[in-house]
């Protein structure tokens, strides 16, 4: 048994790639299982080399501070501590405004 599938990455930009993909989809449904006996030469398409496509580098986008934030917020302890710190900071900078606590005023 042989599994024919459109394993090459889909790229909308290349015309040739799209055509090849369409041709393959015409003959068989994508991802169908085909027995070896039923395969003929027509089932294959010539894949040409596209120099421009080869120049593209497929790496996920990387942003330094984005990765820092992702790594930082990954841990639950950190999030808990962050919440605790925010609470303490807010309390200590907002509560004295309302309480008007002062060591110098008497009565």
């Amino acid at each position: 048994m042989l599994i024919l599938e459109s394993s090459f990455p889909r790229r909308e930009t290349s015309n040739i790639t799209v055509q090849e993909e369409l041709k393959q989809a015409e003959v068989y449904e994508v991802n169908t299982v085909v027995s070896v006996d039923n395969i003929t030469e027509n089932d294959f398409a010539v894949v040409s080399l596209d120099n421009k496509e080869n120049e593209k580098i497929d790496t996920p986008k990387y942003s330094y501070w984005g990765s820092v934030a992702k790594k930082f917020l990954f841990s639950k302890i950190t999030i808990f501590m962050l919440a605790l710190m925010t609470f303490i900071l807010l309390m200590s900078f907002i509560q004295p405004l309302f309480s008007g606590y002062s060591l110098s005023s008497v009565g």
């Binding site: 303490i88 309390m91 200590s92 900078f93 509560q95 004295p96 309480s99 606590y101 002062s102």
Partner: peptide
């Protein structure tokens, strides 16, 4: 004195 007020004023 309320210790609650004192603590937050001190923490600030």
């Amino acid at each position: 004195n309320s210790l609650f007020d004192a603590i937050w004023a001190g923490a600030r």
